Computed example of a mutant assay.
Amino acid sequence: MFLDEFHTVSDDKIIISAEQASRFAKEVAGDFNPIHDPDAKRFCVPGDLLFAITLSKYGLSQNMAVSFSGMVGRDLPIVMPTKADEAIELKDENGKLYTTIEHSGDVSHNESLISAFIRNYVEFSGQNFPFILVPLLDKHQVMFNPKRPLVIYESMSFNLDTLDIAQPNLELVDSTLEVNGKRGDVHFIFAIKDGDKVVGKGDKKLIVSGIQPFDKVVMDEVVTNFNELKAAYRPA
C-alpha cells in the first residue's frame, strides 16, 4: 500500500520519522500546519497518518471512532496490537496511550477500498484549514493566536451503511463552533458518498486554543503565508 513509504515496521512496532510525517502531511493531506514541519519544536506526527496505518493493518469497519490522547513525536516506536479488539490502543513501549480506535460492525480488508477511503478522508481532512475553519471563525468573530497557532485534532467518528462501496468520497455537511473562554470546540460534519449516494456520515472534532477576537487583516496574512508555503513546496 502507498503508506509503506511513510513509516517503517520493526517487529510489532511502527516508527515514523519527522521527514516521513511531514511528507505525508504535505503531499497526501495538503496540510501545511507548522507542527508537522521536521524542525518544529512541538513537532507531532499527523493523526491522520496514525489512523491510516491502523486502517491498512486492521481493516475498514462500518463503525469507527478514533480519539487522540497524546502527540506522537519523531521516531517514537508505537506498538501495534497483534489483533483488533473492540478498542485498538496505540501505545509506546512504556505503555503511554496515544490513540484509541473503537470499531464495530462488518470489516473489509479490500486494499483498493481501504486505500481509496484513506486518500479521500485525508484529502478532506487536509482542507480543514483554511477552507472550512477560517470562514467558521469569521462567522463567530473569533480566531486562534496567530503567533502561537494551536489547532488540535482531537477525535473523529463515522458510520457506514454498507462496505459495498465502489468509490468513496467525503463532503462537508455542516460545521459548528462552541467557544468557552480561550478554547473553541469545532465539529465538521461530513457525508460519505459512493457516487451520488450517501452511504455514511461522520464527525471530526478539533480543539482551537488561544481564542481571541477575529482580526481579518491578521487572518488574511496567516492564510496568505499558508498558501505561499503550499505553492513553494517541492517534493524531495
Score class of each variant (00 low, 15 high):
L133M: 14
M71L: 15
S112R: 14
A52R: 08
G210R: 08
A87N: 13
L97F: 03
M71R: 09
Q62N: 11
D220L: 01
R119H: 14
A40C: 09
A231I: 11
D75Q: 09
D85R: 14
Y121A: 06
K139E: 14
S112P: 01
D164W: 01
I14Q: 00
G70M: 05
T224R: 15
V28W: 02
D203C: 10
K204W: 08
V218N: 08
D196P: 10
G47E: 05
V179P: 12
K13Y: 02
K182A: 14
L170F: 15
S155Y: 00
E111T: 15
G30R: 02
Y98D: 03
S61W: 12
D196A: 13
V28N: 04
P130R: 06
K147W: 01
T100G: 03
I53T: 00
K57A: 06
G181H: 06
I118W: 11
D4R: 02
I118L: 12
S115T: 15
Q167G: 05
P213Y: 07
K197N: 07
E154Q: 14
E89W: 03
K26A: 03
K230C: 03
F214N: 08
S61G: 11
V142Y: 05
A52C: 11
H103F: 05
D37C: 00
S209C: 12
V186H: 08
E102I: 04
D4E: 15
V151S: 11
A52D: 07
T8E: 13
Q141A: 13
E19T: 10
N169F: 04
D75K: 04
N227V: 05
I101D: 01
T82F: 06
T54Y: 04
G202V: 01
S115E: 15
L160C: 10
F226D: 08
K204L: 12
V122F: 01
K201A: 13
V222G: 04
K216T: 07
N128R: 10
D220E: 15
V28Q: 07
Y233K: 10
K201D: 12
D37T: 01
D161W: 02
T8C: 03
A25W: 00
A191M: 05
N169R: 11
L60G: 07
I88V: 12
H140S: 12
P213F: 08
I165R: 01
A116R: 14
P135L: 06
N128E: 07
Q20G: 02
V173A: 14
E93A: 12
E5L: 09
G200H: 04
Q141V: 08
P130A: 10
V223K: 14
E27S: 06
T82A: 14
R119A: 10
S61Q: 04
N159H: 15
D12E: 15
S112L: 13
T54M: 08
T162P: 05
F214P: 07
T224A: 14
E178I: 11
S125Q: 12
A191E: 12
P135Q: 06
A236N: 13
F124N: 00
H103V: 08
D194R: 02
F117I: 12
G184K: 05
D194G: 03
G59P: 07
E171Q: 10
A52K: 10
G73F: 02
V79A: 10
G30M: 07
G47M: 08
L177F: 09
F124D: 02
K13F: 00
E178P: 01
F188S: 06
F2A: 11
D39L: 00
I88Y: 02
